Amino acid sequence: MTDTASWVPEGVNTELPSAARVYDYLLGGGHNFPGDRALAEKLVTKVPARDMARLNRAFLRRAVLYLLDQGITQFLDLGSGIPTVGNVHEVAHDVNPDARVVYVDYEPVAVAHSELLLEGNKNAAVLQADMRDPDKILQAPRTRELLDLDKPLGLLMVGVVQFIPDGDDPWALAARYRDAVAPGSYLALSAFTWDHAPAGMAGAVEVFKNSQDPIFPRTHAEITRMFDGFDLVEPGLVLTPEWRPERPEDTADAERSNLYAGVAQKPVGHSNG
């Protein structure tokens, strides 16, 4: 039966699970439907999906704080998902109220709730767009209004590139964004990997085939290639809780994360392509 909740944008297929709504459910959010919850519960029988979601969200927070420490004051968050605790603009504005954030997602529920959350916020906006269309995103009036592409920014691809199949060449896509942003910009990226639980992740792939967002986990080497043309900062590409943990004990469940994460800078001497 279709959920007819008043907050559902017109035309949304509430019966076909979406990754954004599954992630929302795994993080304890309330903007999801029975199909999303059922898929999430199947997922947790294959991989520790709640830990994966929590650890990925924690990486996002640490990465944003790191970029703020490097003097970054503007962020482009691709595949931002449904707003939940610890959104980029919340983390950033706690440190720098003037930081500017553009969120991008193609999921209508994610965009609708982001618009509600950001109403009246002059330093943050959301675009409904597919991250595979960088020209549309980078040329959008709201992007141009909030972000100065001639100055370094924080490009966030956190927990999103596993939804891009090899046929759409996520490596070339990362390079297109790299060439569009100013030297000194940073890329923060995390992505599903096969490396530590190949059987479980194969099960997750099967589960996600029943959603609008199939997944494509990748090896350490394949994910590292997405940083071509950037300089990885220490500690390089590691499991999400191993990236600059706040406490040593935070890495105890690292292998349950099943996502690699890294942050890298476009060299200052690298001209835009």
Rank of each mutant, 00 (worst) to 15 (best):
K136N: 05
L138M: 14
R142P: 09
A92W: 00
W171M: 08
P152R: 01
M52C: 09
L173D: 11
V161T: 14
R100S: 10
A124Q: 00
Q74K: 03
F59Q: 00
L138D: 14
S80A: 15
Y106V: 02
Q70A: 06
Q128N: 10
N123S: 05
L118H: 01
V160S: 02
R100N: 09
G79W: 00
D135Q: 08
F163M: 13
T143L: 14
Q74M: 05
D135M: 01
P83Q: 12
L117D: 08
V158Q: 04
R142S: 15
G86T: 09
G154M: 00
R100Q: 12
L68C: 11
T84L: 13
H93Y: 04
F59R: 00
L65M: 10
P108A: 12
K136Q: 08
A110P: 05
A129P: 04
G120H: 02
R61T: 14
A112H: 15
Y106E: 04
Q162V: 13
L155E: 00
A99C: 03
V95Y: 11
L149A: 01
P152Y: 08
V91T: 14
D69M: 07
V101G: 02
Q162F: 14
L68S: 09
D168M: 10
G86H: 07
R142M: 15
V126G: 11
V111G: 12
L67C: 08
A53S: 03
D98K: 12
A53N: 06
M157S: 04
A125W: 10
